[in-house]
């Protein structure tokens, strides 16, 4: 019995890692830059598909293919920012919601046409596992956790110690004041957004590699999970988003263990509502005028 719950806990940690990885990029875009997006998942999946294209169609080595996809995704992020956000910086955030929704619809259908409608198989990037007692821990699961930690620290360093990063943080507090002290608002937003997208795509590659499959329809669900993780952990806190991801993963799997599997997704949304009602700024976030 204990072994059973331990297994489910571990399943939760594994899934949580993936949510956490996705949540970092989402937190940067949504939490730090304040850009509402419902196309995050679709953009991430598109990036992974680009990598897949390099691998499957152009025949490149898998790791090289995925690495190549990252700069392309970065540029794509700039394009997305131009289409969905640039014009609406002074407008209500709800407008961004609709532009990203429209863009998501467009991207999903376009992906289906460009890359085909079926699921695509992606081989595991890192094979092998270690055994601890009854549990098998795959190297790729460890890899995901390690990358998550690396990203948190790298991002924190970036935001606190580099010029661009500090500029982005200034932006998130007060756009006009930031402009007055010389921050190039446009460039900073574009950079921050693209960075968030690239981080997400990295997470997407891990996800595709872990589950060995990707499909253009995976986007929306992924985005919703990342979104829930960020709100749960605290919109303004990037490490909070990561913790939110883990909590989400664990709660979901424990819910399946205790209740029925049909209510798995319900758990995520109930958590969302409870957090919002009790502490809207999330577990680790600060009070913010949004």
């Amino acid at each position: 019995m204990f072994g059973f719950y331990l297994s489910q806990l571990f399943n939760g940690i594994t899934q949580g890692s993936i949510y956490a990885l996705m949540a970092i990029g989402y937190s940067l875009i949504f939490g730090t830059l304040g850009l509402v997006t419902f196309a995050y998942g679709d953009i991430v999946i598109f990036g992974v598909f680009v990598g897949y294209y390099f691998y499957a169609v152009l025949g490149l080595n898998l790791i090289l293919a995925m690495l190549l996809a990252l700069p392309i995704t970065f540029l794509f992020g700039v394009l997305v920012e131009k289409i969905c956000y640039e014009k609406f910086r002074k407008e209500a955030r709800m407008l961004m919601l609709i532009t990203t929704v429209g863009f998501g619809i467009f991207l999903r259908s376009a992906s289906q046409i460009i890359f085909g409608t079926g699921n695509k198989s992606i081989p595991t990037l890192i094979e092998g596992k270690i055994e601890i007692g009854n549990l098998n821990i795959l190297y790729i699961q460890l890899g995901i956790i390690i990358f998550t930690l690396i990203f948190i620290y790298a991002l924190r360093y970036f935001l606190n110690n580099t010029r661009t990063g500090i500029g982005i943080r200034a932006l998130s507090m007060d756009q006009d004041a930031a402009k007055l002290v010389g921050v190039n608002v446009d460039k900073s937003i574009k950079f921050g957004h693209s960075l968030g997208v690239v981080l997400g795509v990295f997470g997407g590659i891990m996800l595709g590699s872990f589950y060995n499959a990707i499909s253009p329809m995976m986007g929306p669900n992924l985005g919703l999970k990342a979104f829930t993780a960020v709100v749960l952990g605290g919109i303004t806190s990037i490490p909070g988003a990561v913790i939110g991801g883990y909590i989400l993963g664990i709660m979901e799997n424990l819910a399946v263990a205790v209740f029925s599997s049909g209510y798995r997704d319900v758990v995520a949304f109930i958590i969302l509502i409870i957090v919002l009602v009790v502490k809207p700024s999330g577990l680790f976030g600060k009070e913010v005028k949004f």
């Binding site: 289409i83 969905c84 407008l95 609709i98 532009t99 929704v101 429209g102 863009f103 998501g104 619809i105 467009f106 991207l107 999903r108 259908s109 376009a110 046409i113």
Partner: peptide
């Protein structure tokens, strides 16, 4: 292409 056109239309109007 129906959905692509739909998505683009929304974007254009906004």
């Amino acid at each position: 292409y129906q959905m692509i056109i739909y998505g683009v239309a929304i974007l254009l109007i906004i």
